[in-house]
Structures are given as structure tokens and as C-alpha cells.
Simulated scan of single mutants.
Amino acid sequence: MAKNILLTGGTGFIGKHLTDLLIDNGFSVSVLSRSDRKNTSSVTYYKWDLDRNYIDEEAILKADYIIHLAGEGIVEKRWTEKRKKDILESRTKPINLIFSILEKNNKTLDAFVSASAVGIYGADTNDTICTENTPPANDFLGITCQEWEKAVDKINSLGIRTVKVRTGIVLGKDEGFLKKVVPSFKLGFGTILGTGKQYVPWVHIADLCEIYLKAIVNEEMHGPYNACVTDNTTNAKLSKTLARLFRYKIWLPKAPVFILKIVLGEMSIAVLEGQRVSSQKIQETGFVFQFTDLERALASCLN
């Protein structure tokens, strides 16, 4: 029988693409969903309700692997104290629930692979090239990622191989980051945010899904891996490249820092700051990125 992989966040942007890749590679896929969904020939859906601390245990007991993708969007809403709590708990609470079910049933897994983020290195643009050994930051994003990964460590304490995929901006057609920014660039109103010097670690959705697949099949992988192209892309470079793909040069002035801070509040650091990130560790596993050129990666998402 095919090995079963259970996804949290399986109905989201990354989850949908990853589901297709896993099925193409001979795995059976289960997905935890808040709403009732009909099973297909390829995917089995199970209910979960984090507000009620509920997960259908059959989904956990059936799984050979679990991939944890669920989490509230970082830049969907202003960071009120409640919103920050929701962002953190939407990442850690599912892991804690899964841990309790695994522990109660003495259930083991071949591996537990969890999303994480390069935000663990903090919102601070500087000359550092962050590796997986770079100390975590103490700002909101850094602390959130630390707590996220500590929850994963609880799974590891059960003797289960764990992998943490630290992701940056994910480029995909009509989804994720590009879904938010492309409309303004398409209309000719795209511009540079703040100084434009902030780094924007990015990865194409196809490469990210392949990294998750590699984390499943490569039993030597464990711990954190940066899942971003090391090309030192800045917001200015990203913005100018998008404008060029729509056949114009940016003509609007840079969006002022103080305006972004007023409009976005504390969340503005997510777009005004960013660090360079090394992909050396994942490449040392033999992984080869399909998309390393920013313009080619963006073009593939716009066609």
C-alpha cells in the first residue's frame, strides 16, 4: 500500500500544489479541513476544529508522515495583540494537539515535517547572511518562529524524525504574495516600498514543494532548512523586475516609510525589513533549485 501523508493546511496555496506533487510521486494524501469536504479518488478529508481542540484521531493514526502547513497569514490583518496571539496559536496549537494524540496512542511516524519561516532571523536589514545556525531574533516574528519550532521539538522528543522548512516569500501564479502585489503592477502603479534596500528571500512554489518531498523521502534530513534562493533580492529589485515584466519602468516615488508605518502599524516591519538567507544546507542534500533567476521565476507565475 502507498504510504499516507497527512497535511494540515492542505487546502491552502502551498498545500494544494504539494498535494498534487505527493500524489504524482505515489503517496496517498489525507487533509485536515475545518469544513466538510467530499473525499476524492486521491484525497481523504478529515475534520478538525482548533477552537474545540478537536482532530479526528483516525487521520493521525492512519498517517505515515505528517506535513504541517497550517497558520494564519502574517500580513493579512494589522497586528493587534489578539491578531498576534492568533498567528502564534494557529501554528503551535495544531502541533500540540497532534503531539497529544501521538503520545496517547503510542503512535510513531516515519517523519513530521513542519513549515517555519525565515522570520526567525528577525526583521532587521543588515549584511548578515543567515544560516540555520544564526541565533533567532527577539522581535514578534522571531519569537513566533521560535515557539513554532519548539512545538515541533515536542514531536521530535517522541523519537520521530522532524524537519523544519524555513520559508520566505513564495512565488506562485495568482496566489500568495503575487496575488496581493500583481494587480497594482499590472495597472502600472507598482512602486518600491520604503528604502527598497530590504532583502526579500524568495522561493518558487515548484521548488518549495520539491523541498517538502525531499524532506519526506530523504531520511538523513532533520532539523531546520532554509527554503529560499540565495540571490540577495531586495524589494527594489523585485519591484523593478515586476514592472519590467509588465513593460514599464517604475514612475511613482517610493512608498514612504512613515506612511507604511501609519497604515500597517507594527506589521510594517514585515515589508520594510528583511535579511539575506543562505540555502547552502538544503543544497548540500543534493537539492537543485529549478528557479534561481528572479525574472524567470516571476515570468513563470505571470503567464
Rank of each mutant, 00 (worst) to 15 (best):
S278I: 11
P256F: 11
F287H: 15
K214I: 10
T131M: 04
P183G: 15
M221T: 05
D51M: 10
E132L: 05
I216G: 08
D139K: 14
V170S: 08
S114N: 11
N303W: 01
R276W: 04
T144I: 09
T144N: 12
T11E: 06
V277I: 14
L102D: 12
Y45G: 00
G194T: 03
I66H: 00
S278R: 10
D49L: 08
T108N: 08
S278W: 13
K197L: 10
G122N: 02
D293V: 13
V200F: 10
G119Q: 05
I23A: 12
W251C: 01
L158Q: 05
I101P: 01
T292C: 00
C209Q: 00
T292F: 00
D49C: 12
D293S: 14
K164N: 12
K38C: 00
L264S: 10
I95H: 05
L187F: 04
R78S: 09
K179L: 14
I211H: 03
S28M: 05
G73Y: 08
D49Q: 07
S33P: 10
L213C: 08
R78Q: 01
K107G: 14
K62E: 05
Y199E: 03
K84G: 12
S90W: 02
R276E: 14
H204W: 07
L213R: 09
H222T: 02
A255P: 07
E175V: 06
T167K: 00
T8H: 07
N232L: 13
G9K: 11
V31F: 14
L32I: 10
S279E: 11
E266K: 14
R166Y: 05
R37K: 11
S239D: 06
I5C: 00
W79D: 06
D110C: 02
K150E: 13
L272H: 02
K16A: 13
F112M: 05
T292D: 03
N226K: 09
F287E: 15
I66Q: 01
L302G: 08
T19S: 07
P135S: 07
L178D: 13
L302T: 14
V163M: 09
G223S: 06
I101A: 01
V43H: 05
A70N: 03
V29D: 01
R276G: 12
S35K: 14
L260C: 04
A59F: 03
M1V: 11
E147V: 05
F177I: 06
P183A: 01
K154E: 15
A117D: 08
A215R: 02
G12D: 07
I98R: 07
I129Q: 13
K249Y: 07
D174M: 09
F13G: 07
P94K: 11
L32G: 04
D110V: 06
D231Q: 02
D110E: 13
L260I: 15
Y199D: 03
L50F: 03
F177V: 01
A70L: 03
N39V: 01
T144E: 11
T195S: 15
E132D: 04
T144K: 12
E220V: 04
G26R: 04
H222K: 12
N39G: 06
T162I: 05
T285N: 09
P135E: 06
T80A: 00
E149N: 10
G15I: 02
I74V: 15
L213I: 00
I95S: 01
L50H: 06
S42K: 11
C228M: 01
K107I: 09
